[in-house]
């Protein structure tokens, strides 16, 4: 009986801890990490995952999710005049709603339209097409 209570307590504690963590992430503006394809050139359709949110019932089955934004690390982007190419060519993409260049951190924030995103291959293509070196995606989104 004692073992059963202990087990229930541990399960409850772990569920509460998980929920608290997701709330903290939401407060910090951290969303799901983008699931960027490392191969191929087609547009990414999103990934499947569970949605945990207080007040909402968990949907039966899996729900499609896409990243709302991506932070791209770019090497060699020292000149604002030249970085225009990155901004312009990302804005040409139908999936992109906004682009913010940060020269201090040498990174570009890409905001996607709802339910849309770009593959990592597409992002890399834009960066290298503008003449810069692609250094990957930053973890926190």
């Amino acid at each position: 009986m004692k073992m059963l209570f202990t087990l229930i307590f541990v399960l409850n504690w772990s569920l509460l801890a998980k929920e608290s963590d997701s709330h903290q992430k939401a407060e910090l503006g951290i969303t799901e990490k983008p699931q960027m394809s490392h191969q191929g050139h087609g547009e990414h359709k999103g990934h499947k995952g569970h949605k945990h949110k207080e007040g909402h019932k968990m949907k039966a089955g899996l729900e499609k999710m896409t990243p709302s934004q991506a932070v791209v690390k770019v090497q060699g982007m020292v000149c604002a005049f030249c970085a225009q190419g990155i901004e312009k060519n990302f804005k040409k993409k139908n999936e992109v709603s906004a682009v913010e260049v940060d020269l201090d951190k040498m990174q570009v924030l890409i905001k996607f339209k709802k339910g849309q995103s770009l593959t990592e291959a597409s992002i890399k293509e834009v960066v290298t097409g503008a003449g810069f070196q692609y250094k990957g995606l930053k973890d926190a989104q």
């Binding site: 090497q75 060699g76 020292v78 000149c79 810069f132």
Partner: peptide, 12 residues
């Protein structure tokens, strides 16, 4: 032609 480009961590 751009013959050569060096994209450094803080220079180009």
């Amino acid at each position: 032609f751009l013959l050569k480009r060096w994209n450094g961590p803080s220079y180009q």
